[in-house]
């Protein structure tokens, strides 16, 4: 390793400056605005200049955290996101392994189908799923012979359906990433394991998984962030949060309570809370990994 000289840090900073500037502009400024707005009573009247601004300090946060509804929705969101993340990773990983084991034409078909799901815009995908699961005219009820059964009425059935849709449109990312990861494991490593007499299961858990770990971390964090922030699927498939709002997740709740109602201050505070939670999840995850000796 080269000895560090004085001034290296400054040069490094100079090299990083353009990227930092872009980050500050694109990320820092919006977050700054978000935090700022969350400290004010900021509604449509204030935006268009019809009413004076009132500084509330942490008033919006106090109001938010004192709502039972907020905590219920938060819990629901965490549970929903957990199920979606687990489902996405399982399906993605299973199909990635499958892709390494089948012939080219089968793999091509699998990839094309997955990319189709990936490329479908969320609004279109959700609407198509709704058509498929329509109570009276849906294909699924037709096949199952359950015409008239509403897939979006019961709380858990509705959540299940939306979770399935979320998994459907996000597993391709996991699959493609892990497939690339598996393919990049040098043949010699696997060959060596085989020569040492390792079984398939042993190879998978002791050789492949550790090598894939950095990738798994990335796709997990990505999935957590995506699924925690899910909006479109819930908003469209449950008609804005289900019967009496029992299928609400945090983002839809924020939209309905705050932005549709022009309470931008309150909405911004929900946004800040979500950002902090996601940052905490990410940081906690990274620290846990570092402790277990993984270098990123």
């Amino acid at each position: 390793m080269m000895p560090t000289r004085r001034g290296d840090g400054r040069i490094a900073f100079a090299y990083l400056a353009p990227a930092l500037l872009v980050l500050a502009g694109l990320l820092g400024y919006p977050i700054y605005q978000l935090v700022l707005i969350s400290l004010f009573d900021y509604g449509q009247e204030q935006v268009s200049g019809g009413a004076p601004l009132t500084f509330l300090g942490l008033g919006n946060y106090a109001e938010l955290l004192s709502q039972d509804r907020f905590w219920a929705v938060l819990g629901q969101t965490v549970g929903f996101a957990a199920v979606c993340v687990a489902g996405t990773l399982l399906v993605g990983a299973a199909l990635a392994v499958l892709a390494t084991r089948v012939r080219t034409w089968a793999r091509m078909t699998l990839f094309l189908a997955a990319l189709g799901a990936w490329a479908t815009p969320a609004v279109a995908g959700s609407t198509i799923w709704l058509f498929l699961f329509d109570a009276n005219f849906g294909f699924v009820n037709e096949v199952l012979g359950t015409t008239g059964f509403s897939w979006t009425y019961d709380r858990w059935v509705a959540f299940g359906l939306v979770a399935a849709q979320v998994v459907w449109c996000s597993f391709p990312f996991v699959m493609v990433t892990l497939y690339a990861g598996i393919k990049s494991i040098p043949g010699e490593v696997l060959e060596a394991a085989a020569l040492d007499g390792a079984s398939t299961a042993k190879t998978a858990t002791s050789v492949i998984l550790p090598l894939l770990r950095p990738l798994l971390i990335v796709v997990t964090i990505q999935s957590v962030i995506w699924d925690f922030k899910v909006f479109t699927q819930v908003y469209i498939m449950t008609g804005g949060g289900g019967i009496a709002g029992r299928n609400l997740v945090l983002n839809v709740y924020a939209y309905q309570q705050a932005f549709a109602a022009s309470e931008y201050g309150l909405g911004a505070s929900i946004g800040v809370v979500m950002t902090v939670l996601l940052l905490a999840v990410t940081v906690g995850y990274l620290r846990a990994l570092r402790r277990s000796g993984e270098v990123l």
């Binding site: 900021y42 204030q46 935006v47 268009s48 200049g49 500084f55």
Partner: peptide, 11 residues
């Protein structure tokens, strides 16, 4: 420097 969110002047 800017401790208040933007407001457009009243119409």
């Amino acid at each position: 420097a800017g401790c208040a969110p933007v407001q457009s002047g009243s119409a």
